[in-house]
Design a protein around this nucleic acid. Structure first.
Lengths: 235, 235
DNA sequence: GAAAATTTGTTCGTATGTATC
DNA sequence: CGATACATACGAACAAATTTT
């Protein structure tokens, strides 16, 4: 309920101290859903004002460490995992670094053949079903470049998910998110049909459990996408 | 100076609206160091109180989008790239997901052979020098497991940097950071000497511009590290 | 180097909207 | 539906840090 004892704080940016203590408690074993208290309670316990606590809470929330709810039985809890927040952080950093589209594609060339072969080895039926669903979905909007691009990238993400490796999955989501805006203009219908065909082949290899073929097909596929896009700044 | 025009806002969590607008402007082309205004100015422009702006600022700061400075000519600016924030975001995410050490190593198995071969193709003299420096540094602390692990991982990061791909570089930094704590205990001196020898071979292949050899050596190296570590939760 | 100006950091008090009981 | 618990938001003020004068 409330075994954790907070040290009273004083220093430059008191809210930083609050953040640090809650962060330590988080990495010290707090689990998603664990109750932290209300803003008023925390203000009293840390010996600071409610506004200082709010500063800390906003930061912790942005980092994905806590969730905030209003109303009775509201207050602060340890957050559930939320990939969006991690993805946003990666997107921001890639933007600041001025990373190019080519760099992101190259990174995908490294990752995706492996996710495909891992998926072929160990994808569950549910995961396979989801991969197949992304192909169907993309096929339905084959004439709409923006929509097709979006759902086509979903295929790659679904394959990564089927790999069973959450580190690769999260990383790939981040990469596809950042490159999405640059892909759309080139997804004309002829190209789109070819992409669907290749996705289907890759899916079949994965479903057949043919690791080597899945790896090779995905490798060719990602490399061809890379060739089709000229060197451009990403953002 | 101030061409960006902010829409006035109203809705649930007004600060979210402020965050979204500044975020859009950020991805819309604002550059690191660009001036956004003071908290008071933004409060007036958005038509909200300064406290609401502060909520937004704390979130934007945590996401790595803005930097805040106090004093005359202080206020909000677009942030410089800061890898630490990205790394922290990834660490939080992996903690919440309960990702295993093995998953992270697997991800490295996908990425590092490519960084090695890319480095062999295009590393600058300066980058090569830095790779060599990490080997020397690791060799100097070969009896100290924690220090050796740290500098040994620096080798992998230096190779990724030498690849010239910042997306891979940033990703690898994050991965090595979260796995560091689990690696240290296993870096006994015998193992350490073997690692140094392999790192030297990889460096030589990169310096010789032998892409294929660099790729193969790195592949073997990462896979052997993977074999040596049992399946364990990362955190 | 000291004083003034600027700007965030922090506090208190209060009002309002919203979710739960 | 009313009461309660809680975050959200506003305003006014002073403290502390930093740059300019």
């Amino acid at each position: 309920m409330e075994e954790t004892t907070w040290r009273p704080v004083r220093g430059t940016r008191v809210s930083e101290e609050v953040i640090e203590q809650i962060r330590e408690a988080f990495f010290g074993g707090l689990q998603p859903g664990d109750w932290l208290g209300t803003e008023t309670e925390l203000a009293e316990r840390f010996g600071v004002s409610r506004i200082t606590i709010r500063d800390a809470v906003r930061t912790l929330e942005a980092r994905g460490i806590v969730d905030v709810k209003v109303g009775a039985r509201g207050g602060l809890r340890i957050a559930e995992a939320d990939q969006d927040r991690f993805i946003d952080a990666l997107a921001v950093q890639l933007h600041l670094l001025g990373v190019t589209f080519t760099e992101v594609i190259e990174a995908q060339c490294a990752i995706e053949p492996l996710t495909a072969s891992m998926a072929a080895r160990q994808a569950t039926d549910e995961q396979l079903r989801r991969v197949a669903a992304t192909i169907t979905a993309a096929n339905e909007v084959i004439g709409d470049p923006a929509a097709f691009t979006e759902r086509s990238l979903d295929f790659h993400i679904a394959v990564a998910e089927a790999s069973g490796n959450r580190a690769l999955h999260a990383t790939l989501i981040a990469f596809t998110t950042v490159q999405k805006p640059k892909m759309a203009p080139r997804a004309n219908e002829r190209r789109a049909r070819r992409v669907v065909k290749i996705h289907e082949e890759i899916y079949q290899a994965i479903a057949d459990g043919d690791e080597e073929r899945a790896r090779t097909l995905m490798d060719d596929h990602v490399r061809s996408v890379r060739r089709e896009h000229p060197e451009t700044p990403l953002l």
